[in-house]
Structures are given as structure tokens and as C-alpha cells.
Amino acid sequence: MQFLWYQYFELFSLLCAVLCRKGLNFFSIGIMIPILILDNVTEVIGVNYPFFGWSDNYFVYDMYQILSLPLTFWLFSRMLDGSRKQRIRLFIAGGAIEVFFIVNLLFIQGISEFNTYSALIMEIANIVLSCLLLTRLAVRKDDESGLLMDPYFWINGMILIFSLVTIIVLGSVKYISAHHIKIRHILLYRQILPAANAILYTGYTGAFLLCQKLRTN
């Protein structure tokens, strides 16, 4: 069993989410706990795929994309806190993307390779939604606490950074593998993704602690 360094960040983030669950519920982002459980489980299985006798872990991450999409859209719908109409629009868009993911897994790219189209769409959706939410926050929030004291700012800021950094890498996983694009003898995505993950989960952890702090205040 392998446990890579960035997984500690994921695990710590999950622990914080569980400990600060009241704060998370206070900010309507209790869904973060199932998201983080899914992230951790996927990462543990994905990293230890030889243990299960698999030749690669693409299927694990393809399934992760399909499972995490509804949870992510649910999270955004909670954070956007829009009207019923806006929420329905968001769920329709999420549903359409989910259908595409399943079709892509079953008929287009298949289960034997990493579904780069799905990954690209997922990252684009993350970028668009997080930008929308961040802009809304900046425009609407005018109380004394400020944007930096808002957990949504950190969650969405980190999602945005993560998606911007990984969109290129995840979109070209196949190409990077085929052409052995490496930095210091390690494949490019194996270098970049762990660092991006570490940043993302550190941001999450900070946001969870803020949730708890603001709730108790």
C-alpha cells in the first residue's frame, strides 16, 4: 500500500471537514464531506491500482469524474444560492455533462483510457462556475469582514487555481504519456498534479476552519 505525500493534504482536509461539519453545514457546504471522502477513496485506489491487479488506474479516475460531477454541481448550487430557475438551469447543465461523461466512458474514449474530454469539460465547468461565484462574491459582499474572510472565496479560489493549472495537464495526459514528457525523469502530470492537489486541499482546509470560526463567532 502506497500513500503519497499529497494524500496527507487530502486526508487532513477530510479530517478538518468532519471536525468542522457544523461550520460547513452553517455555510450550506456539508456536501464537501462526501466530496472529500470520494477524493480520498479514489486517490487511495488510484495510487494502489497494482494492489488490485489492474494494469492502469484510468478507469478509477474516469469513474471518479462521473461520481464527483453531481456532487460538485450540488456544491456550486449551494454556494451560488441562486433562484429556483437558476438552480434548475445549473442542474440541467450538470445533467447534460453527466450524460456526456457516461457516453464518453461507454462509447467514445472507453474504459481503457483516461477520458480526457470529460476531464477538460469538468475543468472548464469548474473554471466558469468558480469565476461566476467569485465575481458574485466580490460584487455583493460589502460587509466589514471582507472577501478574504469568506470561506467561499477560498474554496472557489483554490478550485479556480487547481482547474487552471490542471486543465492543460489532464487534457493532454495521453500525449504526455505517449511522448514521455517528463521533468526530472517523472511524467509531467505526476509532477504537477500532486502540487496542485496540495494547494487545493490546503485552501479547503483553511476554508473549513474559517467556516467553524465564523459559525462560533
Binding site: 469565476c131 467569485l134 465575481t135 462574491l137 466580490a138 460584487v139 459582499k141 460589502d142 460587509d143 466589514e144 471582507g146 472577501l147 478574504l148 472565496f153 479560489g157 479556480l160 487555481i161 487552471l164 493549472v165
Partner: peptide, 19 residues
């Protein structure tokens, strides 16, 4: 990454000015 960070900084500054 630069544009992402710049966007966040600009939003934070805009919000600061607004407040």
C-alpha cells in the same frame, strides 16, 4: 496560474475598495 492569481487579487482589491 498567473492569470488565476491576478484575477483573485483583483477581485479581493475590488471588494476592498467597494467595502
Amino acid at each position: 496560474l498567473f492569470f488565476g492569481v491576478l484575477f483573485l487579487v483583483m477581485l479581493a482589491y475590488y471588494n476592498y475598495r467597494r467595502r
